[in-house]
Amino acid sequence: MKTLLLNKEDVGRLIHMREVIETVEEAYKAFNSGQVTQPPYTCIHLPPPRGEIDFKLSHCEANEIISMKASSGGFPNNPTEYGVPSGMGTVLLFDARTCALICAMDGSLLTGLRTGAAGAVSVKALARKNAKTVASIGTGNQARMQIRAIREVMQIETIHAWDHHPETLAQYQVDIEREFGIPVVAARSKQAAVEQADIIVTTTRGKGSLVEAAWVQPGTHIVAIGTDTYGKQEFEPEIFRGAKIVNDSIVQCVEKGETWHPLNRQIIRREDIHAELGEILLGKKPGRETDNEITIFDSTGMAIQDNTTAARIYRNAIAGQVGTAFEFIPS
């Protein structure tokens, strides 16, 4: 049998953001419909200045695909010392009926796409319908991806952006305004950005509270992306008190997500978590119910998102005869 090989350029031209948003919605619904097997993901932390590598695995009954993704990040010396990116990813797809390897594809772009789409799906389900202003805390690649996705589900009038690094913030402002024509305000402080926001998006590798509770206005929707493993944090835990808390996976978020911090401080109890996002998409639980409530989407990232997105890319590649086929397993 033949196995398809897809590089980063192939992946980029085989799927667009609207499709990714659809596949991520499929993933959340499948997860909360009992159609997904998703073991806990594992993470190997390497000594500084190196970062970590995550391994995520899932099976989706709806598409009969098993996916396995390895994704690394936080290797700042890679470009200069080794000539490779600071973060990389690889996805393997197996036909669940035979467990034969059917596709190997670049996973770095896929991870960015499906993570951006996750934020957009949460905005559709939880943000106020009249939301217009976004605060971007962090202005790296994933911050850009969040805007690419969110603009597909709402009209963004203004972005208030902040970053530790002024040069990164300045480049973000240029890039976003050129690509989308959305005005970007380079905020003088985190507080100045957050206080203006209908939607707060955080995409940093934070190790402490970046956003304080006093800054968050009633009716704000928070998209918490950066905290996806032990030791990371972006929000003052007090923000969770009285908020509507939605996780992608409760099991993951209470152990490795932003939700762990208020639980650890006993600001909230596990039963204070309102829902998983798939439950809201399926109509099992309500989304936003008033214009004044603060909603929080804590996303640790799930293997099933990789599964459904990679499966769509694979189907598009087969239909378009894209990629390189090789005999991994001789017939």
Rank of each mutant, 00 (worst) to 15 (best):
E64M: 12
I66F: 13
I66G: 07
S67P: 06
M68W: 12
S71P: 07
S71I: 14
S72V: 04
G73K: 12
G74E: 00
G74R: 04
P79F: 05
P79L: 06
T80S: 13
T80L: 11
V84K: 09
P85W: 13
P85F: 04
G87E: 00
G87V: 03
M88K: 11
M88A: 12
T90C: 14
D95A: 09
A96H: 10
T98D: 09
L101F: 09
L101D: 05
C103N: 13
C103H: 04
A104L: 14
M105F: 10
G107Q: 10
G107P: 11
S108W: 11
L109Y: 13
L109I: 13
L109W: 11
L109S: 10
G112S: 00
L113Y: 15
R114A: 04
R114P: 02
R114S: 08
T115M: 08
T115E: 01
T115D: 05
A117Q: 06
A117W: 00
A118S: 15
G119L: 04
A120G: 10
V121H: 03
V121M: 00
S122W: 00
S122L: 08
V123M: 08
N130V: 10
A131E: 04
K132V: 06
K132W: 03
K132C: 03
A135M: 09
S136Y: 04
I137M: 06
G138L: 02
G138A: 09
T139V: 11
G140C: 09
N141I: 13
R144Y: 13
R144H: 13
M145A: 15
Q146D: 02
I147R: 02
I147T: 06
R148D: 14
A149V: 00
A149Y: 02
E152Y: 03
E152F: 05
H160W: 14
W162D: 00
D163N: 15
D163V: 08
H165A: 13
P166G: 05
P166K: 11
L169N: 12
A170L: 10
A170V: 09
Q171P: 02
Y172I: 06
Q173E: 15
Q173N: 14
V174G: 05
D175K: 12
I176Q: 01
R178K: 15
E179L: 11
F180L: 09
I182N: 02
P183I: 10
V184M: 05
V184Q: 02
A187P: 03
R188M: 12
R188G: 15
K190P: 10
A192F: 07
A192W: 05
A193E: 11
A193L: 03
A193V: 10
V194Y: 00
E195Y: 09
Q196R: 15
D198W: 01
D198A: 00
D198L: 02
I199P: 01
I200S: 04
V201N: 04
V201H: 03
T203R: 05
T204H: 10
R205P: 10
G206V: 08
V211A: 07
